[in-house]
Every structure is written in C-alpha cells, then in structure tokens.
Write a protein that binds this DNA or RNA. Structure first.
Lengths: 231, 231
DNA sequence: ACAAAAGTGTTCGTGCTACACCCATGG
DNA sequence: CCATGGGTGTAGCACGAACACTTTTGT
C-alpha cells in the first residue's frame, strides 16, 4: 500500500418532523450548526467530525452526535454515499461519509447554542457540499417511506393515524390520506393497534385510536413492486 | 483535524451475464482475481486498490479496473457502501469503499492470467469481507432491475426480447416472461424497437425483432410504487 | 407440413386512490 | 343538536402475471 492516507470525516443529516409554527402542521427539519470561524464563517454545517482510530463509521457518527450536539435519541442511522472529490473542502484532503439519521417527533433534545433545527423548505446558507448531502438524505428518506417501515424512526411510540399522516406529509411534501395509510400499513404488518384511544383535540371530535410500529428495526415491506418471482 | 488518517481502498464487484456452459442459458458472473501471496494466498478477491491523491473514488475504481484487469467497457458503476471496521483486514487499517459495476454481455475483455469470471451461484473461497460485498452488489442489482433501466448496462446495444429476458433471469435468479417484459419496459419508455430483425436461431423459428435501450444513463422508471403524490 | 421460436390478445388478481358515508365526542 | 375530527365501506383503476393463440421462419 504505497499510496497516501487521507483524513476521513462523518457527516450526519439528522431529520425530525417538528412543529415550526404553532397551530400549523409539523414540517421536516434538519439539524445544523453555525460555523463561528472561517472557512465559511456564518454558514450552516451538518454535525459530524473526524473518524477515530478505534471506531467504525457508524459508531463515529453516533459518538459525534452525542458529544457535539448532545443528541442521544437517534432512532435510525444509515449510510448514504461518500464524497471524495480531492478539493471538496479547502485545506488538506478530507473524504466525507454521509449518514441519514432520524429522531422521533416527540423527543426534545437539548441543543448547544450554535445548533438549530431548520425546516428543509427554508434552508439557510449551507457550508461546502453539505447541501448536496441534505438533498440526498431527503430523497432517500422519501423513497424509503414508500417501501419500508422507516417511519418508525420519525414517529413517537404511540400515535393516532392523523398524526402519522402528518409525519408522512411533512417528509414527502404532499398530503397523505390517513384512512388509506392505515390500510396500507396494517396490511403490511407495519403498525398494530394498541387498543387504547387518545385524547380528543382542542376543537372537539372523536378520540382517535392509537397505534404503534410492530418493529423498531428497518424492514423492507414492499420488495419487488414489479418483476416478482413466480409462485 | 487532530485525528489519524487512514488508508482507503476501492473494491469493485463487476458483473457480466455470460455463457458458462455452451447451450445453456447465460449466468450472472463476477470478476475475481486469485491472490498469489499471503495473506489468504489462493483465495479470490475483488479487483480494486488504493486511492491516489488526485482522484475521487469513482475515477479510482475505473482506473484500477483498466490498469489491473484491463477492463475498459464498464457500462455502469455506482457506489455501494463503505466497510470501515478497524480490523476488517490484517495489517494497518484500510477503509474500503465498494462499487457495483456492470459490463455488457457481448463484450469480451482480455483478462490477466490470475483473473477470471465466476458464476455467482458457485463462488470459490473469497478473501476477507469481499463475499459480503458481492452479496450486497447482487441484491442491489436485483432491486434496481425492477424500478430502473439498469439493465442497459448488462445488455448488448441491440437485442431480442428473449435474449433480454435471459439476462433478467440470470440476474434475478428466476424466470422472466419475455412477453410481459416487453410490455413493461416499452410502457415505461425504457426500450424502443429498432425496426430491424435479428437472425433466426440454429433450431429454426421466427426471427426476432430487435430493441435497444432508450437511455444509457441510469434512470428511475418506477418511482413511488405506493404513496404517490396526488393527481 | 411440422417444429421452433416470436409476437398478440385476453383474463384475472391485486393493491392503491378517491370519496362518500357513518360514528363518537365536546360545546 | 351541530360542528369537528375519526373510522368504515365501496367503486374504480392501473398494472402486471399467466397463458392460450396466432404468426413467421427453417428444414
């Protein structure tokens, strides 16, 4: 192995569906911190940092999130792609492995001063190539919502179907009918009824049945939309 | 950036659908080379090697395939995941980025002595964690066959539908009806008729119409099997 | 004429969307 | 008893699987 070794960093696009304006439906938001110093002081960056000698990438991602932004409730974390252009950031070469992370909508982590949730529909100025990572994370999340149970990582432990369809709507960017969503997800065995009911809302209405996700691990629920095996 | 830099290698799982036994339908095969020296002398490895200072990962992968196994007709190459366990191979730490590559079934690259195509159904002893990479590449390929036009990278420039369904069959591991395949792919605009016909086979029969792929770039052709946007 | 392979048409099932209608609760 | 939201039922459609039937060639 005669060739040069390089630095390696992990960058995490962590999403939460959260209320941005009170009374409005919740929106998909991503966790960013603001750079205090150059390069690109003032712009917003993804949390992350450099890989240590004794950890693999995923452990590193979890460590950085816990240490730097005090985030410990990551319900799901998966690899996106690697960004390896030699000049992707100024200074010595750093290869970035990007991750998609998600925290449930009911968790309220304590964040440092420089760190904030930003609705993905109104992102501030983003550092380096981090915007591309956010975009990729977003589209990966949208795609996986349709054929996996990945929403378990965005939803609280128990939820009404209208709350869940709000989450899908926020993540996908278009309305999702809660009545059909129930049928799809229960037929696939993704969610199960708890048997309990929630409280009725502030403006009246029937109290909703509550559901939970059957698994808290990622599962493919709709493999092979087409070209499936015979029999 | 106080932390250690590490070596970084690229590993390519390159597939071709090729005739293994004459007269039999073609099978999905992967390109491997046999290690002459320890560690793990005799076992078979994926082509690849270490990243240079001035190249990104994809360029590196293409370079290594051209230099080391004289392979220049790679029709598609995409990133799989990164393997970063500190002790994944003996010796100093090396992080591996894995790639999925594909070669059209009609190209016949010249291979070095130690390099050979192996049907994925009868793999030899594989080095280190390379088997895991082959498996992942295989399942990624199978998945993408159903919702993208990725078969363009496995098929020759022009082909009959029965030849194409042989390719799908080899890559998926189960039979694919050529008549339905035609309908699916032409409806999606993935393939178009050339207007010409091929030669009839050695055992007689009607000469087949020839088709070609409309794009030679990867395209998603069946986004959102479910939960699609309204209207 | 017959075998072999390609191409066409038809039936059927499945799964999702859309929407109308019914139910439960608070004021 | 009415407004508000939750839940159920149903019709329709789009797409693909399976398979029978027809067409075109070589021998």
């Amino acid at each position: 192995m005669p060739s040069p070794s390089v630095f390696h960093e992990v960058l995490c696009a962590v999403f939460q569906v959260r209320e941005h304006l009170p009374g409005e439906p919740p929106v998909l938001s991503v966790l960013l911190w603001q750079r205090a110093f150059d390069p690109q002081a003032g712009s917003w960056s993804l949390p992350g940092g450099s890989l240590q000698a004794d950890e693999d990438l995923k452990s590193s991602a979890l460590r950085q999130l816990a240490e730097k932004v005090d985030l410990r409730q990551v319900a799901h974390l998966e690899q996106l792609s690697v960004f390896s252009e030699p000049d992707r950031i100024p200074g010595p070469r750093v290869i970035a492995s990007s991750y998609l992370g998600m925290v449930p909508s009911d968790s309220q982590p304590n964040l440092p001063q420089d760190t904030r949730w930003h609705p993905v529909s109104m992102l501030p100025e983003i550092s380096f190539d981090h915007r591309k990572i956010v975009e990729r994370a977003r589209s990966r999340l949208a795609a996986k919502l349709s054929y996996t149970n990945i929403a378990f990582a965005l939803a609280p432990a128990e939820f009404s179907m209208s709350a869940l369809s709000d989450i899908y709507c926020a993540a996908l960017g278009y309305p999702v009918d809660s009545t059909n969503l129930l049928r799809i997800l229960s037929r696939r065995g993704v969610i199960t009824a708890t048997g309990t009911v929630g409280r009725t809302g502030p403006s009246g209405g029937r109290p909703p049945a509550l559901y939970r996700f059957a698994d808290k691990q990622l599962r493919i629920t709709d493999e092979f939309a087409t070209l499936r095996p015979p029999l």
